[in-house]
Structures are given as structure tokens and as C-alpha cells.
């Protein structure tokens, strides 16, 4: 039995430990132990779902998910629709989660993205909710709602166009007391598709020779807008997302295969390029947008 221990705080900076443990589970049964989970962000949520889907695919049987002991955490997982999605990949003994009022800080519950109409649904949903979070919580101007919708649309399309496999998206605002003393909006996208290296290999691997790998594929796509299509109009999505995230002084990273590449603002210390990570299929996109002002108080609250 492989036991995969989920850290008590599961976010974009710790989700790699789950991926690392998953890489070692190649046969037999698996238990994913989230019993001590106390905090989870969207990257942690979609990462955990991806881990479950991968283990089920690889092991031929659903891994067991030990759910968090804390009732508040379990309630949150229900509310953000993690449990609804997790049922597809994990076996679970679901206790009735404590009813918790819907939080206004959830911008987008975990949403599967497999088709073009899913992207429209995501943009529709965000239009109705994003205004309050972006303006009151983050202190951004109202016009940001449209720009934010464009960013979400483009990251979701990345799943459909390049992964050719299902994926998930989620977004939520958090108050980061320890790290930044301000509110942050975290957007996470994950898929279990081909990943950047495989997606680009047929068109571009030859030029790179032995240097071709997850890191060079990510550099080609992320830094230079390279795509597998001959069409000049392709490859703009990631470039435009990076441009917009930079304007908001945000962090954007993409993990694919064994590498992660990032545009890193001054307030974060994520490396610009990491290689030699535990192999994990598909791509995981993480965007973190900071509030304009420090402090817990919201603008106009």
C-alpha cells in the first residue's frame, strides 16, 4: 500500500510533495492521506484531484482518500465542489460535512473543463462574481473584470487546445497574513494531458536536439510563444496572460512534466525555472494576484 501524505497546508508551494509521492506509486493500492489538511488553495485542490485521477489511471483502481478531520476544512471541500469531483477518482468515506455558508471569496468552484462551452460557462460565472472580489477585495478597477475573464478564458483553452485531455480550473481570494499581509487571488488550472514537451515535440524537438526536454519546451512556449501550429495567430494566449499578470504585479507559473517555469514578481521567491522535479503528466498553471493594498480590510468595506 502506497501512502501519500498530504501536507497540512496544501498550496502552490507544497503541492509538489504530493506529485513527488505519486511518482513513486506505480502499482498496487494507494492511500492519499489528507487527514491533517488544515489549509488548501485552488492549486492544492486541482493538484489533489489530478493526483487522484493519475493514480486511478496508473494503478487500475481508485486510490482511497482519507478526508480532513477538521469539519471546517471538510465543509470547505464540499462547498468548493472538490468532493463532487473527487468521487470520480477516489474511494472515500464521506462524513456529512458541516454546513457552512457560501463564502463570497470563492470566485470559481472547481470546474471541469473539457469543451468549448465549458469555457463559456466559466466566463459567464465569473462575470457575475468577479466584480466584488476584484474591486472590494483586491482593490482593482472595475474594468479588470473583463481582463480577468480574458485571462481565465485563455488558460482554460490551454487545456482544450494543447492537453487534449480533461482538466479543472478553480479560483479563490485569500488573506495571506504571514506571507504578505494582504489579500491574494489564486487561480489554478490543471490537466493530465500530453504536457508541453509532447505537444510541441513533432514541430520543434528537432531544432533543440539533445537539449529538448520539459524545461526547453516550457521555455519555448512560455518565453517565445512557440506552438505546435503553423498558424501565426496561435501562441498569443500565454504571452497575453503573462503581460496582464505582470501589470497586476502577479505571479504566474506553469509546471509540466519535470519542470516549472515562472514570471516571478519581487514579492515572491519562486525560481524562474526549475528542472528535475518529480514527473507529473499534463500541465499545471498557477496565477497569484495580490491586492493593491496591505491589510485585511477590504476596499470600501
Amino acid at each position: 500500500m502506497h501512502v501519500i501524505r498530504v501536507p497540512s497546508s496544501l498550496d502552490y508551494s507544497t503541492v509538489d510533495s504530493v506529485f513527488r509521492q505519486c511518482a513513486q506509486a506505480v502499482e498496487g493500492k494507494a492511500l492519499v492521506d489528507a487527514g491533517y489538511l488544515r489549509f488548501v488553495d485552488p492549486q492544492g485542490l486541482v493538484g489533489l484531484l489530478s493526483a487522484g485521477a493519475l493514480l486511478k489511471r496508473r494503478l487500475g483502481q481508485a486510490p482511497h482518500l482519507r478526508l480532513p478531520r477538521q469539519a471546517e476544512v471538510l465543509g470547505y471541500l464540499a462547498r468548493i465542489r472538490f468532493l463532487e469531483q473527487a468521487r470520480r477518482f477516489f474511494s472515500m468515506e464521506i462524513r456529512r460535512p458541516r454546513e457552512i455558508a457560501a463564502s463570497s471569496d470563492v470566485l470559481l468552484e472547481i470546474t471541469p473543463v473539457t469543451t468549448n462551452s465549458d469555457v463559456h460557462a466559466v466566463v459567464d460565472r465569473v462575470q457575475t462574481r468577479a466584480g466584488t472580489i476584484l474591486t472590494r477585495t483586491l482593490g482593482y478597477p472595475l474594468v479588470t473584470v473583463v481582463q480577468f475573464s480574458v485571462v481565465l478564458s485563455e488558460v482554460c483553452q490551454n487545456i482544450i487546445e494543447h492537453a487534449e485531455a480533461p482538466g479543472w480550473v478553480a479560483a479563490q481570494a485569500y488573506y495571506w497574513a504571514k506571507r504578505r499581509d494582504r489579500w491574494m487571488l489564486v487561480i489554478a488550472v490543471s490537466d493530465l494531458g500530453r504536457g508541453f514537451r509532447e505537444s510541441l515535440a513533432a514541430e520543434h524537438a528537432g531544432r533543440f536536439g539533445k537539449r529538448w526536454g520539459d524545461g526547453s519546451a516550457l521555455e519555448a512556449a512560455f518565453l517565445h510563444g512557440v506552438t505546435r501550429f503553423q498558424d501565426l495567430g496561435r501562441g498569443q494566449g500565454i504571452q497575453q496572460i503573462r503581460k496582464q499578470v505582470r501589470r497586476w504585479d502577479g505571479l504566474i507559473s506553469i509546471r509540466s512534466g519535470t519542470a516549472r517555469i515562472a514570471d516571478v514578481p519581487e514579492w515572491d521567491d519562486t525560481p524562474a525555472l526549475e528542472q528535475g522535479l518529480a514527473r507529473f503528466p499534463g500541465a499545471q498553471i498557477n496565477i497569484v494576484l495580490p491586492a493593491k493594498q496591505r491589510g485585511r480590510e477590504r476596499s470600501g468595506a
Partner: peptide, 13 residues
């Protein structure tokens, strides 16, 4: 696209 809004999003659209 059946949508409440009129969003010009996604390449297939």
C-alpha cells in the same frame, strides 16, 4: 453558443 451573455471567447466560437 447558448449563453446568457455575448462573449467572444474561445477559438472555436
Amino acid at each position: 453558443v447558448a449563453s446568457l451573455y455575448a462573449h467572444l471567447v474561445t477559438r472555436p466560437t
